[in-house]
Simulated assay, not measured.
Amino acid sequence: MMDDHDPTNAASVDAVRRELLDSLDEELEMELEDERLDHLDPAAASDRDGADLDRRLYFRELLRLQHELVRLQDWVQTQKLRVVVVFEGRHSAGKGGVIKRITQRLNPRVCRVAALPAPSERERTQWYFQRYVSHLPAGGEIVLFDRSWYNRAGVERVMGFCTEADVEEFFRSVPAFERMLVRSGIVLVKYWFSITDAEQAFRFRMRIDDPLKQWKLSPMDVESRRRWEDYTRAKEDMLARTHIPEAPWWVVAADDKKRARLNCIGHFLTQIPYAEVPRPAVHLPDRVRHADYERAPIPPEMHVPAIY
């Protein structure tokens, strides 16, 4: 048992505490970022404050769910499962935020994100699903699609980047394509992040006023505001025609970012039965020391200036 009055033990406890706090800094930074955005438009933000999730509860639940995600990751890796999670929704619906929280504590060699750019000239001449197939997981991998083949039913359709014949062919093909993925053993989970007109307008205004977020607002995003109803019709058609028993859609109420993250992660964990994977005990060996070894000095000009 540790003696709390032992200076050596006290130093060790402090070091452990600092390490744990450091591991939480990334999440804290992201939360402070959300607050900073609200301060850019206090009047609009105040309308949304009444039902805010308690911060302590949010962090406690997020860390609990992330611990479960690590357990799920171990199970996927051990059982050589192949998992695909599709994230769709309007611009600024919060897909990226939940993807960050899912991947935050996971091994990037096991869980990776596929966020494909606009297709190249060559890709436009390929079978539509071809460029997505190359990103599908191997055994022991989880792939999160930050937008997916459903671009054709949403952005491409609304913005006129494809013909209605292309869209109809997509709707004929996608159920068969997804059934084929599921039959091959892939676990396919599809989420639609749903936000209201007013909430999207608020988030767009935040991006317009924030120099750190303006890069997120593309001309296509701006145009999507004008075409809100077109996107709504396209979404309704997509959900109705591609909600199949083998790969159903799950709708995440996303006006409240924190609740959306917790609800989505919590639900995702229910989609794959998993169990604890026993880990062998790890013992650090003593460092080998050689009497004739001397550490070479690093030239001063190679050091990064210690400004902070």
Results as ranks from 00 to 15, higher is better:
Met2Arg: 13
Met2Asp: 11
Asp3Tyr: 05
Pro7Gly: 05
Ala11Lys: 15
Ala11Gln: 15
Arg17Phe: 09
Glu19Asp: 14
Ser23Gly: 09
Leu24Gln: 12
Leu24Pro: 02
Asp25His: 13
Glu26Thr: 14
Glu26Gln: 14
Met30Glu: 11
Glu31Asp: 11
Arg36Pro: 00
Ala43Glu: 15
Ala43Gly: 08
Ala45Asp: 11
Asp54Val: 09
Glu61Leu: 13
Gln66Phe: 04
Glu68Phe: 07
Leu72Met: 14
Gln73Cys: 05
Asp74Ser: 08
Gln77Tyr: 11
Ala93Phe: 06
Ala93Asp: 10
Gly94Ile: 06
Lys95Tyr: 03
Lys100Phe: 05
Arg105Ser: 14
Asn107Met: 05
Asn107Phe: 03
Arg109Trp: 11
Ala115Arg: 11
Arg122Met: 05
Glu123Asp: 05
Glu123Ile: 01
Arg124Phe: 08
Tyr128Ile: 03
Pro137Glu: 04
Ala138Gly: 12
Gly139Arg: 01
Gly140Phe: 09
Asp146Arg: 08
Asp146Met: 06
Tyr150Arg: 09
Arg152Gly: 00
Val158Glu: 05
Gly160Val: 09
Phe161Ala: 08
Thr163Ser: 15
Glu164Ser: 08
Val167Phe: 11
Glu168Trp: 09
Val174Met: 04
Pro175Ser: 03
Met180Ile: 00
Met180Cys: 07
Leu181Glu: 05
Val182Arg: 10
Val182Met: 07
Arg183Leu: 02
Ile186Trp: 01
Leu188Cys: 07
Tyr191Pro: 01
Tyr191Asn: 03
Ser194Glu: 14
Thr196Ile: 04
Asp197Phe: 11
Ala198Glu: 15
Ala201Tyr: 00
Phe202Lys: 04
Arg203Phe: 05
Asp209Arg: 15
Pro211Ser: 04
Leu212Gln: 11
Trp215Lys: 11
Pro219Phe: 12
Asp221Gln: 03
Arg226Asp: 06
Trp228Lys: 05
Thr242Ile: 03
Glu246Val: 04
Ala247Leu: 05
Ala247Ile: 07
Ala247Trp: 01
Trp249Tyr: 06
Ala253Pro: 04
Asp256Met: 02
Lys258Ser: 12
Arg259Lys: 14
Ala260Cys: 10
Leu262Gly: 01
His267Pro: 04
Leu269Asn: 01
Ile272Asp: 02
Pro273Thr: 07
Ala275Asp: 13
Val277Ala: 00
Pro280Val: 09
Ala281Glu: 15
Ala281Gly: 10
Val288Ile: 13
Arg289Asp: 11
His290Ser: 10
His290Gly: 01
Ala291Met: 10
Glu294Asn: 09
Ile307His: 12
